[in-house]
Amino acid sequence: MLLENKRLLITGVLTESSIAWRVARLAQEQGAELVLTGFGRGLRLTERMAGRLPHPPEVLELDVTREDHIAAVAQALDIRWGRVDGVLHAVAFAPQHTLGGGFLAAPWADAATALHVSAYSFVAVGRGFGDLLAGAGGGSLVGLDFDGSVAWPAYDWMGVAKSALESCCRYLARDLGGRGTRVNLVAAGPLHTVAARGIPGAEAVSGPWPHRAPLGWDLADTEPVARVVCALLSDWMPAVTGEIVHADGGAHAVGAPPLPPKDEHSSFGGTRRIHQGD
């Protein structure tokens, strides 16, 4: 019961393929009490998915780009719980034509939308729920990331937004650390989520991933990522903050897929075959 008696706010639950959905289910199995959020057309989807959890939680409307929404949810949770032990920020968005090769053509207004939803909102959530997290002895804020250290095919302005998110994580960790709040990101490998399916050409990244990752990678299995998120939301990592934890099968650590096993007769450290008489 890693999260027993923890009270968690989870954003981003849309379908069973959502990482946030698996986090919510696993968190309940580990003893947590939840509130989910959704907004706009996705609110109905979140409500539907909440009903499929073992203990259907309340769903509140939250557009993370609106300060009044954040304040309203914070007030509702203050009345309901008086504290929040953890928050999962699982929100990202970029207009369609800023992805799939649209990097150079994207106007600032669209790039700004990607940065606002996918990066700045992480700061807004940390600020808006900071008092409730501090009321829980510090609590934990966790965001979902995709390795922003390199330029990926098709990812374009979402990649830039993820780089910004990683920087925001470090600054939030600095500014909220004095209140005991831990701030971390989980950099997941590619998964067949709704968001991923909306990126034209995303298969150029996801396709080779299972072969590149030393531990292998299942594009349909969100549980390995959800377990890392739940660990960070728990009390088991009290000294970890400002960190990017990779849950990607180890692909971030290698530059290319591993070479096939060498022929048992190959010379050590080289490719020259050893023949009788050499």
Rank of each mutant, 00 (worst) to 15 (best):
S18M: 07
F39Q: 15
E29A: 14
L36R: 04
R52I: 00
P54G: 06
I19M: 11
S17P: 02
G38W: 04
R25F: 00
G38Y: 06
R44M: 00
P56M: 06
T15Y: 11
R41P: 12
E47I: 01
A24C: 07
T11M: 14
R22Y: 00
M49Q: 13
G31E: 12
F39D: 13
G42K: 15
H55A: 13
G51V: 02
L14W: 11
T46N: 05
L36C: 03
A24M: 05
V13C: 05
Q30R: 15
S17V: 08
A27D: 11
L34S: 05
V13H: 04
G38R: 07
A27I: 11
G51D: 03
A24Q: 04
P57I: 04
E16A: 13
G40R: 15
V23R: 12
P57F: 02
T46L: 03
H55L: 10
A20Y: 05
G51W: 03
G51M: 05
T15L: 13
Q30I: 00
P57G: 06
A27T: 13
P54A: 12
T37P: 08
E47H: 02
P56Q: 06
E33F: 07
E16L: 03
I10H: 07
G51R: 08
G40V: 13
A50S: 03
R22N: 10
L9R: 09
G38N: 10
P56V: 04
T37Q: 11
L14T: 15
L9G: 02
R25H: 12
A50K: 01
A32N: 12
G40H: 15
V13P: 02
L53M: 06
G38D: 06
G12T: 11
E33Y: 11
V35F: 00
L34V: 05
I10F: 07
R25G: 00
E33M: 12
G42C: 11
R52M: 01
L26H: 14
G38Q: 09
P56L: 04
L53H: 06
L26I: 06
L36E: 01
E16D: 10
T46I: 03
S18C: 09
L45V: 02
P54K: 09
T11F: 07
G51N: 06
P57H: 08
G40K: 15
P54C: 04
